[in-house]
Design a protein around this nucleic acid. Structure first.
Lengths: 229, 229
DNA sequence: GAGATATGAATGAACG
DNA sequence: CGTTCATTCATATCTC
């Protein structure tokens, strides 16, 4: 790509502003740049960039690289904004649901999806802790996230930090997960469960709960109490 | 500057506020965002961002840009904090620098990063996640259980509702349990964990935490999503 | 309600 | 060019 970076570190103007790590265009400079950009010169060639820089220097220290970056970012963000507008308009064509006016905002809002169509296995790879391919799908498939409508018999609780829609009344934890689970309220108290693995008292709307695999904390206790001394 | 504040329409929320100039995420939204972030998705691609936005909308008006900015800031500030900690740790060598009060950390020897592949063998139970076959093995084989080093200063926290003694300082969750775990404070917020699965900030005496197997709540979602047509 | 802090938003500066 | 990082600006929130 074009260099344009030659003098990357450029910090003149020590006379007025304390050390600034990056160029801060003066209002006059921005005015000039915007004017040029809006006049149609959105990607000035190198020599033109130099000319512009010299012009800008009348209002403050600036390097060619700064001008180059400015136009580059200006183009990028302008285009991005355009795309967002387009997207929101397209979405408007689909009267398939409620949609708010999310007025797009400038900046970096588009990325390329590294997404492999197939998120493959859920089993983690050796790496351990990085990323959950199916996470968002799960969120999405969740009824609470799929339907805007709120059923009178349903309510929202947070399970392990995740907003979840559950029905009111007893919850059959064992049937849901096969057993060996304990449900804790965020206060640290376990939610009482009967011998059949059913939470008789149900949960409370808006509250936060934690689903814990018994073996998990059992092991933790073993480790801790024994201390392996 | 143009709007760019996506959420300029304050739809009928509970309490109407006098026009905010910027988005103020609801506690539920923060909880969701933190959960996603701590689950490893620290830089969701665009389409994921859109999904997340739709999810968040259940709890208040929000735009894609807000979500994007949130993750960008979260990443940035998390990284910065990490660097700060690192810097303050290495600053111990410099007799001439400012030194912070490392209330917790000198015990940095209590965790040794296991070789990727040696102690952790996750990702092999590729099948459905009915039960966690490899879990117990992980627990049993984990060396941490056999060499519980004595930490000079211990404190009591509640882990999954059980009073537990733990050493002060960073906690190597991954080495302890083989990974795929997230630690939540009882407030519902996940405890920040670095890329190596270590809780840098340690835990706080007397507080209540929840150890959650990631697949666990993933499964919860799967189960719960049944019926989402 | 001024100052300190947390954090949403914006943007210069790169990177790939 | 699209994306990402680092820094800065602006404002919401909190405290005394």
């Amino acid at each position: 790509m074009e260099d344009a970076t030659g003098s990357r570190q450029q910090q003149g103007e020590a006379a007025e502003q304390p050390v600034r790590s990056r160029w801060t265009p003066k209002p006059e400079q921005i005015l000039i740049l915007e004017t040029i950009f809006n006049s149609g010169m959105v990607n000035p060639p190198k020599d033109e960039t130099v000319r512009i820089r010299k012009l800008l220097e009348k209002f403050g220290s600036v390097a060619d690289a700064n001008v180059f970056y400015w136009f580059q970012n200006r183009r990028s963000r302008s285009r991005r904004r355009q795309r967002q507008v387009q997207a929101s308009l397209t979405a408007a064509d689909h009267p398939s649901g409620i949609h708010y006016d999310h007025t797009f905002s400038p900046n970096s809002l588009s990325y390329t999806m590294p997404n492999p169509g197939s998120s493959s296995s859920f089993g983690h790879n050796s790496g351990g802790f990085s990323g959950y391919p199916g996470l968002m799908q799960e969120f999405e498939q969740n009824p609470v996230f799929c339907e805007a409508e709120v059923q009178s018999q349903m309510m929202t609780v947070f399970v392990n930090g995740v907003a979840t829609e559950v029905g009111r009344g007893p919850v059959d934890v064992k049937a849901m997960f096969g057993g060996d689970l304990v449900v804790y309220h965020s206060s640290g108290l376990a939610v009482e469960m009967n011998e059949y693995g059913i939470l008789m008292q149900g949960l409370q709307h808006g509250e936060s709960y934690f689903l814990v695999i018994i073996l998990c904390w059992l092991m933790f206790l073993v480790v801790d109490s024994v201390g392996c001394a």
